[in-house]
Design a protein around this nucleic acid. Sequence first.
DNA 1: CTCCTCACG
DNA 2: GACGTACGTGAGGAGC
Length: 952
Amino acid sequence: MADKQHLYLVDGSAYIFRAYHRLPPLTDPQGTPVGAVYGYTTMLWKLADDLDKADGPTHLAVILDKGSTSFRNEIYDQYKANRPPPPEDLVPQFPLIRDATRAFSLPCIEEDGLEADDLIASYARVATRRGWDVTIVSSDKDLMQLVGRCAEPDDGVPEGGCIDMLDTMKNQRIGPDEVVEKFGVPPELVGDVLALMGDSVDNVPGIFGIGPKTASKLVVEHGGLAAALDAAPEMKKSKLRDRLIEGREMAELSRVLVQLKEDCELPMPLEDFKLTTVPRDPLAAFLEKHGFTSLLRRLDGGNGSLSRPTNLHPAKPVNKGAEASQGGNRQPLPQMPEIDRSTYECVQTIERLERWIERAFAAGLVAIDTETSALDAMRADLAGISLALGPNDACYIPLAHGGSDMFAERPQQVARETALTMLRPLLESDAVLKVGQNVKYDLNVLARHDIAMAPVDDTMIVSFALDAGRSLDGIGGGHGMDELAQRHLGHTTLTFKDICGSGKKAIPFGEVPLDRATEYAAEDADVTWRLYANLKPRLATEGGSRIYQRVDRPLIPVVAQMERHGIKVDRGQLAKLSEEFAAETGRLEAEIHAIAGAAFTIGSPKQLGDVLFDKMGYKGGRKGKSGQYSTDQAILERLSAQGAEIADKVLEWRQLTKLKSTYTDALQAAIHPDTGRVHTSYSLVGAQTGRLSSTDPNLQNIPIRTEIGRQIREAFVAEDGNVLLAADYSQIELRLAAHMADVPELKQAFANGEDIHARTAAEMFGEVTRDTRASAKTINFAILYGISRWGLAARLKVEADEAQAMIDTYFQRFPGIQRYIMETLETVRERGYSETLFGRKTWFPRIGSKNQTERQGSERAAINAPIQGTSADIIKRAMARMMPALEAAGLGHVRMLLQVHDELVFELPATDVAAASPVIERVMAEAATPAVSLDVPLGIEIGTGASWGQAH
DNA sequence: CTCCTCACG
DNA sequence: GACGTACGTGAGGAGC
């Protein structure tokens, strides 16, 4: 089998669409967009580079779609009919794909009237019949029909070649097992599943109301599409049965559409696909032309890595000023050897561990990552720790691998408690900086083993301080390790999924064999070390030090501790509410169905819309792209005003089901079995403005606005003998707006402790009534959010003209506000980012967009960000100072539990409220000083009670 | 996996 | 003269 042939068929068209959406928009020296082409080039490179490797290609061709119609359009004229035109900056890249392929001297196949899929299927068939292996480079689900297929016995080959797929973006081989995992059926039945579920992208109709899950279930149960359709009339009466009977024709049509044509004439014989060493010159010319200099260096044997090309520019620079600073994102990398996972050490003895600890002390800086059995730091068990002291100088220390399988031998490793005892002095040493990626997680895991790791630095938060908001269409703007490694190191990390699998097949990290575990874990530490070397110097040169060192970094251990504290919730109280909500919901459901005259799923906006507007004939508009009726609160309230009783009941039903599913049910499930409390996880990089966000569960959106929802807050309680204390900043964003926009009238009003909305009403309307105050309040908020006449008109339920008149009046009375808005936007357009009073940057790459909606959206966000962000900075500073201040007052036992943007929640003995309140108030009120001196006082409101509800 | 809706500041 | 949008989040349910 030495001369085994292996054909790679690259689905080029599909690749560039994916590459376009996954990669940052880059342009070459001529100004042509080349982001997708760059991705495509590196992929071809990698494939061609694998020549001669085991399982690498011996033959390779690129297959492209040609034209927009195929024989399928003759069968079904709507085929691919609703596909939107490709994005503007992708179009010029199509021809470049052919150029790139030619540059590699690779064959490029396309044929009128045929789709790439059909050509691929045909070539694959011919090749397997000759006994060749075939790898289809694509992730297209239609092509998964071919996976696992081998030559037939009567093809006359002794050992038939087989087909698999390779998804280069996920670096994943797709064999029959993966297909079964995805579709629940083997490859030969994938076509049947696709025919049932349809495909909205290709506009294959399928059967309405049947998705992947149902489709797969039907095919498995009946053994195929035809059998499932035949069996429909005998099924018990159900929606599904009706759909199958009604949709029969559509399914049969869809089956034909998804069938790949395997007998196409082959435009070029297989032999011509023979892969040889790629001739240098045409490729060099291509790379040079498009400015792919790092690839060019690599081609000529230099040390250039396959990382981002250094002389490409981000597309559509906001303007000249912004371009320069965006370039800061792409400084030349410090010379580092490429990541080589074979250099990592698995530390299995006390002697080796001692050596690493010794070296870490000597280095003074160590990147660290903990591996655990789960994602939740409060529940996960520690499986191992990895350390890195430099590029390719990393190790993994397994601590709890193996052992769950009684028959497997537990691999050699240092006992967990022994290792942690040895590591503790290092992890707690002031003389050694520990660098992590999302180090709050590691902090909490280690805290549960009584290790208080300090001092720490965090590459994720450094990235946030530098690049918050810097994504384009969500590409490459995140701060996760995989994304940062890709962006800054040009390196694709092993993912957790690669190692542990996903879904039902997933195994805990502690069951991963040590060699694989070491590659993954040590790589994480290595990457963290490199990212730190890469990002940290930028803090100083790009003005991020202040916010990172003074605000965000000190917050890491503080928030970690809040998460560990958690908050007690009264399970019985929640269960009681759940029952009440369920009963009331059931009653409402019956009433709603009675009014509608039929049963339907009230929770389905689609069905509800059809009932209200088609069946019952109420008036209301269709909404935008989905073609669905909107049934949101505003619409239902309007219907209710017209006397539609059903609308009221639906609103009430929605409120109750929401409260039950999201709060009373979910919170009970979130109670930690050991602590009996609920531990949220705060994201320190969650909101681009600098706010925290809260997940699993979200404790920043517990109901308060309605009486019925408020009952849920009553279930958040203090332990016996304790009380909860809630401290709020009052109107902090308006106060900051008054300061930042320099509005004397508003500043004066705050200084005097006036009702700010009443004062606004007086200024604007001359008199203060309930109505004018309410309007003034709406307008005040509209200002903070970036105002538009239509938005204000919708909120106030007046005409746009009238809203505009109010805005004009507002600007006239408070000219500082208009000036602030103009100046903020000017600065953001010029520099590309906004800044808070404490120097936090938020980037707005879309501020110069030609798309009006997009641009105006960015403008509103840019007006709001400095205000919302400054408020976030202030409460973060208060949080960082809180415990030291309380400790100084002998109140170190007071526990800070929650942060809800402008509110902090504490738990303390009832007897300490009098002593603690003034300390808390002072720390919060003075949180801006001395860095910033505000012209307005920061007002704090404090309340206490046995529950969070009562503390308000 | 995306959309819709809705909970919070 | 439009966009039934407000700024910032996260979660659950439905659909396909």
